[in-house]
Design a protein around this nucleic acid. Structure first.
Lengths: 257, 257
DNA sequence: AGCAAAACGTGAGCACTGCTCTTGCTTGAG
DNA sequence: CTCAAGCAAGAGCAGTGCTCACGTTTTGCT
């Protein structure tokens, strides 16, 4: 169909990409607040008005960047999972622990969880302004369009995958204590919508933990840990491990010992 | 000394307050991004340039608002604690539980924790834009001045107070598992700086839980729970209770049974 | 009381922003 | 080959933060 639909469309998509790249560069350099269409146009050597042929407004450009960023952080989460993303692939050189001899060696669920959390945090630290765009104050016109909900869930799905595998392997401690019926109904609806099956209490704590993970990262990134937590890596790793245990993950590697 | 230092200073502080009030109103109405000095000046019937006699820049005005907001949310946290803030004082009418007969009846530490968390959340829901100013994306010139660190810790201190009381009453379960030495040293330094004494593992989980609490609130406020969690009140109450247990708080009211 | 100095309010102005509209050129389809 | 659609450019509007030179008012000091 649209194999070589013409030079025009090629140019259009190329220019669109160039605009996004330049915008992303400015975003990374100065933050979303300082991202200006005119500056982007200037850097690209075109009139500012020409830019509106590609993005009807500044917010639409932002939305495009948000979407890309959601995919990027989702990909980072997946890549960090040694069971799905390939540990040695694009992960930040982490040759310490396991596979010096190239042995696959099924990683423990808890280790996978910690790795995914670490991957998300690493991406956030590497792209603070893009992270802020996703998980900071919603921009101006707020309420993201429906199209962002799917990519926004990618990180969550990476976490769910770990817990789901652990559940399937029978290596999941169900959290104790009663679950209010309202919450149970809520998470059940969510699970059918996401097409997953997990005990309701697990899902409830999983959702909460998902939010808490980003609370941790946001506090670190937004300066709330300044003069409070200094050993950030160790603190994050420790807390992340605690979170995993809270979800019911255990330290044992594969199935039953 | 400065009792009636002159009409000038009176006028100055009044005008300063008026500016802040108007700015706060605009902030609440449209968000920090749309807060404009000119609009504030317009609403106050003065030239925009006159405003710079009171706040040297827009960021300084924002900083003033941030400081006030930190105090406000801190006060909300303290007021929500039935043990310190007076349950029926300025708290959001909550006549259900305890003191119909005026009996003090020491509240359980876990209930206090949940109440404080609920108070913080209630304030956030009532002042979303101010909350975003505090815990959302840091503004533009970022790095808050040193003066904001003290009021920023008020909410944390309210939480610490509950845990501290529980610890003093011997009603605190220490969290299991080892604490990495780096983290232990970190939290010990923090405790000496804050002049509090708590077991290091407790303090570590307390700091993490503090961040996680705001992760929860931020996700709710910033729309991340849209189509994910609908029964927000119940979910928050439930999660908050779980957090309390994670810190080591127990359901028993006062001291040892 | 008188006077200099500091504080104050004003309006014009600069550089910047997002966005619109008119004008002319280039391209691709019939 | 034609002609409409897509594209780029420039001027322009309304708005922003912020500065500056200018009168006016108030204050503190002699």
């Amino acid at each position: 169909m649209t194999a070589i639909r013409g030079a025009r469309e090629r140019a259009r998509s190329e220019i669109t990409a160039a605009i996004k790249d330049e915008a992303r560069a400015q975003l990374a350099a100065e933050g979303a607040a300082k991202l200006s269409l005119r500056a982007v146009a200037r850097a690209l050597g075109m009139a500012s008005s020409a830019l509106y042929r590609y993005f009807p407004s500044r917010d639409d450009l932002l939305t495009a960047l948000i979407l890309d960023a959601y995919h990027a952080i989702g990909a980072a989460a997946e890549a960090a999972d040694p069971a799905t993303g390939g540990a040695g692939a694009s992960g930040p050189a982490e040759s310490g622990g396991t596979g010096a001899a190239g042995r696959p060696e099924t990683p423990g669920h808890l280790e996978r969880w910690v790795a995914v959390c670490g991957g998300v945090r690493a991406w956030a630290l590497a792209h603070p302004h893009e992270y802020a765009l996703l998980y900071g104050t919603p921009v101006p016109g707020y309420h993201a369009p429906q199209t962002t909900t799917a990519p926004a869930g990618r990180v969550a799905r990476a976490l769910i995958a770990v817990v789901g595998d652990a559940h399937a392997a029978g290596a999941l401690h169900e959290p104790p204590g009663p679950l209010p019926e309202e919450v149970a109904a809520d998470v059940r609806a969510l699970m059918t919508e996401l097409d997953i099956e997990l005990p309701a209490p697990v899902m409830a704590v999983l959702v909460a933990t998902w939010a808490q993970l980003f609370g941790l990262i946001s506090f670190e990134l937004f300066g709330q840990f300044h003069r409070v937590v200094e050993e950030r890596d160790a603190f994050f790793a420790h807390t992340t491990r605690r979170l995993a245990e809270g979800v019911g993950l255990t330290a044992e590697p594969g199935g039953a010992a």
